[in-house]
Amino acid sequence: MTPTVQVDHLTRRYRGQLALDDVSCELQQDAVTGLLGRNGAGKSTLMRILNGQEFPTSGTVLVHGENPLENDAVLSRMVFVKESQVYPDIKVKRVLEAASWFYPNWDADLAAQLMDDFELPTNRAVKKLSRGMHSAVGIVLGLSARAAITLFDEPYLGLDAVARQIFYDRLLADYAEHPRTILLSTHLIDEVADLLENVLVIDRGRIVVDAAADDLRGRAVTVSGAKSAVDAFTAARKVWHRTGIGSLASATVGGPLDDLARTRARDLGLEVAPVSLQELVIRSAQLGPEHRPERISA
């Protein structure tokens, strides 16, 4: 696949605080990539730099082979919906009307459909909307724009579970019909796990996981059973996380396990379970830089 976005040794520093630390990654064309990580990990900073809204301290960003900073040719093919998106004091229908002028592929029918789905009042001023409805406007805008590169920075703030599911469903359906490069930053990892083709996990400004979602499954496993058996199994392995209660224990170890290891686990009476994407992110963040395994890459 062709990379649409190339980030090379990108660093962003704010008055002594390192927001991004030598980040290098690529966004594949026409793929949904999840940008996952904790609060303050550097997700929003990375997205703002990709959108040319922020200046890198060092390193380069290329979008469609060009620097996005003040570059109308690049930026006109992007839409960036932020967590706390600011709108002018105008009605919802005016927001969408204005957005439609900027995107040649704008789908008014889709916008109308999404407005119905989210039960958004078109004639109400944006500032009078509830928190969830405010977020829904951003989602409608981001999806209907059908921009070549769509950046969603935690766009669901205040949205209830039903509305979030509508967002995921509509995103997937529209992406299937009109493939484009989508970068979705989120905390709700389990909810979006099935949407993602690629995963970027950022922690303390560094990319710790950069892999296809399918490749990540089986990157780590949890073994659980008798404490002595778990200890025996994990003796020669890098343990990401360990918990125990009484005589029982469970440990997350780097995988994938080969047949020999699986047989040994079975012989020891251990249960082997795959680690979910959310757990993988949590564990990789908990390890800390000094104990973390090498960057996981596809």
């Binding site: 959108n51 040319g52 809204q53 003040e70 570059n71 109308d72 930026l75 006109s76 093919r77 992007m78 839409v79 960036f80 919906v81 932020k82 998106q85 600011v86 709108y87 002018p88 004091d89 927001v95 204005a98 957005a99 900027f102 995107y103 805008l141 724009a145 921009a147």
Partner: peptide, 14 residues
């Protein structure tokens, strides 16, 4: 304060 952030969302350069 209101229109510029919205314009940036729509891919307008500063």
């Amino acid at each position: 304060t209101r229109f510029l952030p919205f314009a940036l969302t729509l891919g307008v350069s500063r």
